[in-house]
Design a protein around this nucleic acid. Sequence first.
DNA 1: CACGCAGCTGTAAGCGTTTACAGTAAACGG
DNA 2: CCGTTTACTGTAAACGCTTACAGCTGCGTG
Lengths: 333, 333
Amino acid sequence: MTTVHDVARRAGVSIATVSRVFGRPDAVAEATRHRVLAAAGELGYAPNTSARALVRGRTGYLGLLVHDLANPFYATIAKAAQLEARHRGLALFCADYGDRPDEELTLAKEMARHVDGLLLYPSQPADDALRAATAGLGPAVLIDSPVEGVPHVVMSTAEGVDQAVAHLAALGHRGLVYLDAAPTSMFTSIDRRRNIETSCARTGIELTVLGPFSPGFESGVRAADLVIGEGSTAVVAFSDQMALGVVRRLTERGVRVGADVSVVGVDDIWIAAQVTPALTTVRMPCAEAGAAATRLLADAVDHPGGTPASRVVLPTELIVRSSTGPVPHGGTR
Amino acid sequence: MTTVHDVARRAGVSIATVSRVFGRPDAVAEATRHRVLAAAGELGYAPNTSARALVRGRTGYLGLLVHDLANPFYATIAKAAQLEARHRGLALFCADYGDRPDEELTLAKEMARHVDGLLLYPSQPADDALRAATAGLGPAVLIDSPVEGVPHVVMSTAEGVDQAVAHLAALGHRGLVYLDAAPTSMFTSIDRRRNIETSCARTGIELTVLGPFSPGFESGVRAADLVIGEGSTAVVAFSDQMALGVVRRLTERGVRVGADVSVVGVDDIWIAAQVTPALTTVRMPCAEAGAAATRLLADAVDHPGGTPASRVVLPTELIVRSSTGPVPHGGTR
DNA sequence: CACGCAGCTGTAAGCGTTTACAGTAAACGG
DNA sequence: CCGTTTACTGTAAACGCTTACAGCTGCGTG
């Protein structure tokens, strides 16, 4: 491994000068800088990151902790966060707590030791415990977990869900079934349920909430029969996966999706656009969330005494496709 | 920040003892160890990672570089790698080069500065350039890129594809169309194409290769019409996404998938099991690959003079579902 | 009883950087 | 021509940790 000393010797300067060339290049004369750079190039020198981190008190690393890295929802957040971090000269650790949400805090603590700041997508509801927990870990920004006093970015389904309800109302639907998902204490669940409640109330649509179900395809399949039982003409599911399950079962039972019953999902996963009928859905801006959170965190790391707790709310949007259509003639619920 | 000095003072020992308690605990007397641990606990002390890395010459970090972190295929590898790394007390950096494969090497170099070893899923074909490139970066293990002299793990479709061809042959199919994907120089492309060629040759199935297409749903849609044009009774697609596209278009055109035409995919993405008809496919062991590669790398890092270039070949397996069926009566191609 | 040895602990020398401070030389104004 | 500034560079002290080495104690052994 080549060090500042090697480069210094080769370039005929002191180690301080070498260091400066890589730290604040304009603090050294142009001729010297070139000599040092040349020497460094020949030797293949690059500053040792550990040593630099030690003296600077900054690692240049950020950590991201989510529920499941293999899930496209979180993976998209991770990808965007990673990209944004790189643009700022930072690197990103990724980890997920998977099926052991109790390990979340342990993992966060462990991660905090290695990084300048943490990006957290908490599994638990936003509350005081979380605030307290993040307190000792250095800068942290929360995703989809609006905790007062901690910077966070949330993807609000307010707009998207409102558009969905308006869309259904315009199509003549008088009532709809919402398929809720567990755990109901998570922000995503609360947010979607609350928004659909207010939207329905405002629009005068009769709302029936079913569930909570576990959020997956199978639950949608199961829920579909309940929907038929309810005699409803419209369904809004917690997620696209659930919606896809609903569509599948409805079709199986001879119900024409988009004609007899309208189905709306949330997330806009890629397959939603490809199935027949293509799924009407509320798009979640995962990439934007990942990038925004990283930006917030990087700023918090750079200015320890900056704005105490910024908050970014990312809007959502309804994507209308073919799984929704005018209410059938005979049956208004 | 609390340091060894704080703990040492509080516990009434020297900093060396504190360090030893966290480094090799059995080298210090039990009573002393307890005292130090207590003091450390009260002070909330944990060894500074940068300082430790500096003196040890090891960061305890691994890096993973893939094409696209948001793609479930790579995301699954990343998740497994991350988990395996954690089990070994290591942490994992994740990055992707996305649509700029030319940046791959730059990124790898940059990453190499921060980590003890690299996990690479190269975008380029396995060749000398790659071997040379990885040479200076410290330990590296390649995924799906069998380069002689560099440790690697590959997911071989040999078994899975062979099973698929045998499966189709048993169903009475006399010929099949393979839908190839670009870039054809990548190991995954080469491997799948070569394996299907040998399997068909061995089984006496007539093979028609179409493509290369870009590997996506849309390509499958496009390819479906070509397949109908060929009059073939069976299709094997490069990926599930393509296969799903084929299924979609075939269905649209009134061709009954699993009856008139059999379709086989590769990957076994989650939706493959959920669509109707459920997709027969070759499962790729992404998680196993990620874990195995991490294991190899961790070993290489631990024993710099160990086995020079280990090689792990992970087998694949055909999952039979409903998109394949007996050849239709009238038409044997 | 002297000696060796094992078990434990402390001292101090780094690991490769950054950076405050001091020093030098040239340039400049009076 | 001298004092002062400016521009640059070097010296040396950290940063927090690990670890070779030495020292000390108490034990068993010849």
